[in-house]
Design a protein around this nucleic acid. Structure first.
Length: 299
DNA sequence: AGTATATCTGTCTTTACCTCA
DNA sequence: CTTGAGGTAAAGACAGATATA
């Protein structure tokens, strides 16, 4: 839970916010607790619009009748020229050449030897290759064009059916063991690696969304506390003014002193009729109740 | 049992492709 | 038609856990 420290010796309000929020239904599948400090600077806050894509792309063929892969690997001449021109830039940005779409999409391609040092990636690929052997037998995803190495990296678009099945699976478990991955890939006519990546990204989106929710919550807390701080400052000013208006010394009988129930410190008369008569009646308003606040913070 | 190495799998971050306003 | 923003698939880098020699 959030904690609030209010230093009584300081006129300002000192906030120490911690976070361990109650999980939302969606968050119950989030594998790790949200880390507010970690990503807020890196992610622009946006609202998620699932299924925001329509299937209008001229490059993408979708089939609603069966979970057929949505990717058509053919490129127009123009597109192909653009892709080829882009390639050197890609390589320049990425230190590692295994990003090379040719290699990525076609482990068999001779160009895959261009990869310089990514042992792990190559390992993955070879593993995936084995994984995907069966899958790709039934999939049109690994098309002829990939095999002759003429296609650049092409973005996959999942069909509604594929997305729905993935979502359904994600609801059941946000991570997959190899067996589940394999089965799901087969069911979706995707490569296991694609299923894996989808789950990775899905987890990331869930986390980002939760971070946004947490951020909003903290903003509201901050606003509330700022208001309360303002109110208390004002109250303090009023009391100071009142004190100046009073005689310097005013004997106060013990009977007028009562305990603050929260912190058991002696204070001016609080309860009963006496407090109403006392010029030191200090609570024109009830103590602000903040579930996160120290119970005696207002004393 | 303790250690070094390999492998797997996760997160974080970035890149690139694609769609839409 | 162009452009910029946003969504998302996929990549690299890295860390931690686990298996094995």
């Amino acid at each position: 839970m959030m904690g609030l420290h209010q230093d009584p010796s300081d006129s300002g309000l000192q906030l120490i916010l911690g976070l361990a929020l109650t999980a939302t239904p969606e968050d119950t599948i989030t594998p790790s607790p949200p880390s507010i400090s970690n990503n807020l600077h890196h992610h622009h806050l946006t609202t998620l619009r699932p299924n925001s894509y329509s299937s209008k792309s001229s490059f993408i063929s979708t089939s609603n009748s069966e979970p057929e892969p949505s990717l058509t690997l053919g490129l127009s001449r123009e597109t192909y020229r653009q892709q080829v021109v882009k390639l050197p830039r890609n390589i320049g940005h990425n230190k590692v050449s295994s990003e090379d779409p040719l290699e990525q999409t076609s482990p068999h391609s001779a160009i895959s030897s261009f990869s310089s040092g990514r042992v792990k990636r190559e390992r993955d690929l070879s593993c995936e290759e084995a994984d995907a052997t069966e899958t790709e037998r039934v999939s049109s995803r690994a098309s002829d064009e990939e095999e002759d190495g003429t296609t650049a990296r092409k973005k996959l678009r999942l069909t509604k059916e594929q997305s729905a099945l993935l979502e359904e699976s994600f609801k059941q478990h946000s991570t997959l063991n190899p067996k589940q991955k394999q089965a799901l890939a087969k069911q979706l006519s995707l490569r296991p690696r694609q299923v894996e990546v989808w789950f990775q990204n899905r987890r990331a989106r869930t986390k980002l969304k939760q971070t946004e929710v947490d951020c909003e919550f903290l903003k509201k807390c901050c606003e509330t506390l700022t208001d309360e701080n303002r109110r208390l400052q004002k109250e303090l000013q009023e009391l100071k003014a009142l004190k100046l208006a009073q005689p310097l010394y005013m004997p106060m009988s013990a009977a007028t002193l009562t305990m603050c129930p929260a912190c058991e410190r002696l204070g001016g008369g609080v309860g009963g009729g006496a407090s109403a008569k006392s010029p030191f009646s200090m609570a024109p308003k009830p103590h602000f109740f903040n579930p996160f606040a120290n119970p005696s913070a207002a004393c």
